[in-house]
């Protein structure tokens, strides 16, 4: 009698433990992907630092800033947006290239190269920058932003998102 009762108890316990164990396994199998799923995009580092091709170096005239325009795609989630990036490229010797953003560092207006005066001119507050982007007159707090450049097979590249 006592033996039988013991057996019944162990069967009951076995089933309880087995149920708990299977439940725990299912719980872990669901919970691990669920947590990864929720926090995944938060853990992704921005890896949009990329070299963008502007065009042939032969287009750049010595001592005369040349405007390049290129379309850059930005992806956030499933939405891709296109952004036009305009860059002035300057070279003194045809070997070293300086790429300058055409966005004024004051309030973000677009600057324009005036070759007569040898200056970039910002129409918003009459700011002027010299050929290398240094502030000549006006309110801008710092020189024009520069992009890192490289030349491969006579093609000019700039580093975006760095």
């Amino acid at each position: 009698m006592e033996e039988k009762e013991k057996n019944q108890l162990s069967r009951r316990n076995f089933l309880a433990i087995a149920t708990g164990a299977i439940g725990a396994v299912i719980g872990v199998v669901m919970a691990v992907p669920a947590v990864a799923y929720v926090i995944g995009p938060a853990l992704q580092r921005r890896t949009d630092e990329n070299w963008v091709r502007l065009g042939s170096t032969s287009k750049v005239e010595l001592g005369n800033p040349t405007l390049f325009k290129t379309i850059v795609e930005n992806q956030t989630g499933w939405i891709v947006t296109e952004e036009e990036v305009s860059v002035y490229v300057v070279t003194e010797d045809g070997r070293e290239y300086i790429a300058l953003s055409n966005i004024c560092t004051h309030l973000g207006c677009r600057v324009r190269w005036i070759s007569d005066q040898g200056q970039y001119f910002c129409p918003c507050h009459n700011a002027a920058f010299d050929e290398l982007g240094l502030v000549v007159t006006g309110p801008p707090p710092r020189p024009l932003d520069r992009y890192e450049t490289k030349v491969e097979d006579d093609q000019l590249y700039i580093l975006l998102g760095g």
């Binding site: 992907p33 669920a34 990864a36 799923y37 929720v38 995944g40 995009p41 989630g77 499933w78 939405i79």
Partner: peptide, 27 residues
């Protein structure tokens, strides 16, 4: 958490869940 029920985003958000989000294909 990721799905958006509009014609311009529904399909893309589902593809995003399936291919980009960790464990999304599983969920």
């Amino acid at each position: 958490i990721y799905y958006v029920p509009t014609p311009d985003h529904a399909y893309d958000s589902v593809v995003f869940i399936t291919t980009q989000v960790p464990g999304g294909w599983f969920i």
